[in-house]
């Protein structure tokens, strides 16, 4: 039993950094955030390096209108998008990520800007 577990753990440690599904590790603003100060951008930190051509992030208001001020920027494992000045209300962040080994992940969340 000990040999099996040790072998399994060694396999885990020895697995090559071939890439994996890019999971969201940190977002700013975060999911469900209630903000008094308008954010200038949304920044998403993922667990894997991304393929810029196949990854995307968008921010929309409650009516579904895009509130981004510029094109998305991908740098390594980070996606960011600059925002127009936001009025008080609810906003939705929607992201799709393709890691360098072509695994796809996605997510979405909302944040609120208070007056």
């Amino acid at each position: 039993m000990r040999r099996i577990l040790l072998t399994a753990l060694l396999l885990t440690g020895a697995s090559s950094p071939a890439g994996a599904h890019a999971m969201l590790e940190h977002a700013s603003p975060g999911a469900g955030a209630v903000l008094r100060v308008t954010p200038k951008s949304v920044v998403l930190d993922l667990s894997e390096a991304l393929e810029p051509a196949f990854s995307s992030v968008s921010v929309s208001d409650a009516a579904g209108r895009d509130v981004s001020a510029a094109r998305m920027v991908v740098s390594g494992d980070t996606m960011s998008i600059a925002l127009k000045p936001l009025v008080p209300g609810a906003y939705r962040v929607t992201w799709h990520a393709v890691s360098v080994d072509t695994h796809r992940t996605q997510g979405s969340y909302t944040f609120v800007v208070k007056p």
């Binding site: 697995s15 090559s16 071939a18 080994d101 695994h103």
Partner: peptide, 12 residues
């Protein structure tokens, strides 16, 4: 249980 996600460990 110890479980391995082979698709991420060896994607190619």
């Amino acid at each position: 249980q110890l479980h391995f996600y082979i698709d991420d460990m060896f994607p190619d």
